[in-house]
Computed example of a mutant assay.
Amino acid sequence: MIEIIDIQKRYGNQVALSIKKLEINKNELVGLVGNNGAGKTTLLSLILDLIAPTSGFVTSKSVKVSDTDAWKSYTGSFLNEGFLIPFLNPVEYLSFIGRLHGINETDVLGFLEENKLFFDINVFSEKYIRELSAGNKNKVGILASILSKPEFLILDEPFSNLDPSSQSWLKSKLKDLSKEGVTVIISSHDLKHVTEICSRILLLEEGRIVKDANTSNETLIELEKYFEI
């Protein structure tokens, strides 16, 4: 579904990312792991055409993402709170996202009702997004990313600032989406969460993929050992 060919991203003389070839297949649930500065967010940003590669290209369904906006109709994403609109309340923001995808407000409210165990909109309906905690901003962004029932979903550090119950809900939701045929890429510093739900792990170090393997019972132990100081 996603193919990365000869991608390199440089900032001056510094190589932030360098990948010869990478394929993400339909229906995979892929976890990106690595220390800060390893290139995880850079990779996700290149896939979403948020930044331009120094060289190489990314395709989605065999079409370069830089050549068309067609992929946006079936792609959901949330990388950080910069995706949000701070002067709207959560319902207004999600309704705005819904309109972009042809979803009416009644269906948006129904979607929120279905997912109220993750984020109870009634508790926060009068607050602007800028007034929410980091965890609740994250929840709004995650819900916005899945509102349109995307074929392809990208989340950067989705478990960050979430309470344990919300983390558990999100893990179940991501596994359910994968079972429904959604291709998912998440990055996370939480090795336990990633290895619990992802079918494939990509380990990045200094902008390069140093390990690409299907998840097994030994994966968590291997990753914890890799990151030991």
Rank of each mutant, 00 (worst) to 15 (best):
V33E: 02
F118W: 07
I5P: 02
E105W: 06
T54P: 00
V123A: 14
L117F: 09
L22R: 03
Y11S: 11
T41D: 00
L143R: 07
A213R: 12
I186D: 04
P90E: 03
D156I: 09
T195D: 02
L223C: 09
F227H: 06
V33Y: 02
S148D: 10
N161E: 14
L100P: 07
K64H: 06
P164N: 11
E205S: 12
Q14A: 12
A213P: 02
I24Q: 00
F118P: 08
R99A: 14
E218C: 01
I47Y: 01
G135T: 04
S145P: 08
S95R: 10
G56K: 00
T183C: 05
T54L: 03
I185Y: 04
L132S: 05
L153M: 12
V210W: 05
W71N: 02
D190T: 10
L48C: 08
G141Q: 08
N214K: 15
L223K: 07
L220N: 03
A134V: 12
D120F: 07
D190Y: 10
I197Q: 04
K72I: 10
R10Y: 05
E105H: 10
S45T: 04
I185C: 07
T215W: 06
D67E: 15
G102P: 04
K72D: 08
I201Y: 02
P164K: 06
I103P: 01
L100D: 10
N161G: 01
L48D: 05
N80M: 11
S77N: 12
I47P: 00
E126L: 10
N25S: 13
G102D: 11
E3D: 15
S178I: 07
F57Q: 08
R200K: 15
P90N: 06
N89I: 03
N13C: 06
I185G: 01
D156M: 07
N136A: 06
L22I: 04
L109P: 09
A144C: 06
Q8R: 15
N115P: 07
A70C: 10
Y128D: 14
N161F: 13
T41F: 02
K40V: 03
L84V: 05
K179A: 13
K20L: 08
